[in-house]
Amino acid sequence: MSGLPPTFVHVGSWELPRDDSIQIAQKLRRAGSIAALKVWEGMCHSWQLFAPMLEEGMASISEAASFTKIHLKA
């Protein structure tokens, strides 16, 4: 897990792989990699597909863009 590029993890609290997503972000951090994790309460798998009809979908996409911009400049 060390040496991997910065990783951005958004997972819905209703998703089956929620716990796996949390664990992978923790493992990345322990290995010294950058890992951003956010669990979105009440969201199902791929809720971003409902943007722009769903405010949380737009917010998730916006946060992903911000994360990418920050880490592409490094």
Results as ranks from 00 to 15, higher is better:
G3M: 14
H71F: 08
G57E: 08
G12V: 10
G42D: 13
F8Y: 15
R18I: 12
P5R: 11
I70L: 14
F8R: 00
I61W: 06
A25W: 06
H45V: 02
K27C: 05
K27Y: 00
E56D: 10
R18M: 15
I22F: 04
F50N: 04
A65K: 11
S2I: 04
G32E: 11
E15Y: 12
P5S: 09
A31F: 04
V39R: 05
E15M: 11
V39L: 11
A64E: 07
P5E: 10
S66H: 12
E56L: 07
G32V: 11
P6G: 07
I24T: 01
F50M: 08
I34C: 04
W40I: 13
E63M: 09
F50G: 01
L54R: 13
A36N: 09
H45P: 02
S2T: 06
I24Q: 01
E63Y: 01
L37M: 01
G12E: 09
R18W: 11
I34T: 15
V9T: 13
H71T: 05
H71I: 04
T7W: 05
Q23R: 14
A51Q: 04
S33E: 09
D20P: 08
M58W: 03
E41N: 13
W14S: 15
E56F: 04
I22W: 03
V9F: 10
S2E: 06
H71N: 06
V11L: 13
E56P: 05
M43V: 07
L37F: 00
E55T: 07
I70V: 12
L49A: 08
R29N: 01
I22Y: 07
D19Y: 13
E56A: 09
L37P: 00
A36V: 07
S21E: 01
E15I: 12
L49R: 10
L28R: 06
K73G: 05
P6W: 05
I70K: 13
H45F: 02
A64F: 07
H45K: 01
S60P: 00
H45D: 04
G3E: 12
D20Q: 15
S2W: 03
A36F: 14
T7R: 05
S33W: 04
S46F: 04
R30I: 00
F8E: 06
E41D: 14
W14Y: 15
W14P: 10
L72K: 07
M43A: 13
I24V: 05
R18V: 13
E63I: 02
L28P: 04
L37S: 03
I61D: 03
L72I: 00
D20R: 12
A25E: 02
V9D: 06
P52C: 02
V39D: 02
I61V: 10
F8D: 10
L37R: 03
S60F: 05
M1I: 04
W40E: 14
S21M: 07
E63Q: 14
V39S: 08
W47T: 00
D20F: 11
M43I: 00
R18P: 12
L16C: 10
Q26P: 05
W47Q: 03
R30Y: 06
L4P: 02
G42P: 08
P52T: 06
S62N: 12
A35K: 06
M58Q: 05
S21K: 05
S13R: 14
S2G: 01
Q26W: 02
S13T: 15
A25I: 00
T7F: 08
G3S: 12
A36E: 14
K73A: 10
Q48L: 01
A64K: 01
I24P: 02
D19S: 15
S62W: 02
L28Y: 04
